[in-house]
Design a protein around this nucleic acid. Structure first.
Length: 210
DNA sequence: TCATTAACACGGG
DNA sequence: CCCGTGTTAATGA
């Protein structure tokens, strides 16, 4: 575990903290599609992402969803931080975007490290800041971009976090993430295909240029 | 004008 | 047959 920690978080945490993390935490493998956090749930431990990606969504009472952002290696979940520290319920839903490896840190240790390590404190603040910026960007996207621009952004994000130019999603799944209807996604994707920017297949989209 | 909803046809697995 | 896709018509914001 220590090597993975080092390569992803070594520049952030000092040696003693890295050793404490590897001693007190457990590695967890999650599979694509696994629901990691449900809205309204309390959280018992905090994840550090070693590899893979986690999709963070906002969900309303009817179960309608909206994609907020992705977490990648080197990231942690800011919602989890506030949940653990303040004992609040989760406001978001987290789903594994792909098979991923996480390191789970017990809440108790987090409090201890906050007192003990300044690098831990900066990491927590930095995480909050990063996620707040992502959340603001998500708001900007909804407020100021048309659906075709949002779709382009979505495809770009997808190929980035998956490091794969083929997006393995159905039109319906994309529609859920962007909180719109499949008709719209199908139409916009078709237009992109006609323009030669993507290639459409059943269950997947090959990105040519965006 | 553009999104949504419902409906339908097509076709691949 | 089931599901994903492409398209259209009606309705509304």
């Amino acid at each position: 575990m220590i090597e993975e920690l080092n390569s992803n978080y070594g520049h952030f945490f000092e040696k003693e903290l890295l050793e404490e993390i590897s001693k007190d935490s457990i590695t967890k493998e999650v599979l694509e599609g696994d629901i990691l956090i449900k809205p309204g749930s309390y959280i018992k431990s905090m994840p550090l992402i070693i590899n893979g990606a986690i999709k963070i969504l906002r969900e309303d009472q009817e179960g309608d969803e909206l994609l907020l952002y992705f977490l990648e290696k080197g990231d942690t979940c800011a919602m989890t931080l506030s949940c653990c520290m303040g004992h609040h319920k989760s406001e978001i839903k987290a789903i594994a975007e792909m098979d991923s490896t996480l390191i789970m840190i017990p809440i108790k240790k987090m409090e201890e490290w906050t007192a003990k390590y300044s690098s831990w404190r900066s990491f927590v603040f930095e995480s909050y800041h990063k996620r707040l910026m992502e959340a603001i960007e998500a708001i900007d996207n909804i407020a100021f971009l048309n659906m075709d621009e949002r779709l382009l952004k979505y495809l770009k994000d997808k190929i980035k976090v998956n490091s794969d130019t083929i997006v393995h999603n159905t039109h319906q799944e994309i529609a859920y993430d962007l909180h719109t209807s499949r008709v719209v996604i199908s139409r916009l994707l078709k237009k992109l295909e006609v323009d030669g920017r993507i290639e459409l297949n059943r269950n997947s989209i090959k990105v040519i240029s965006l």
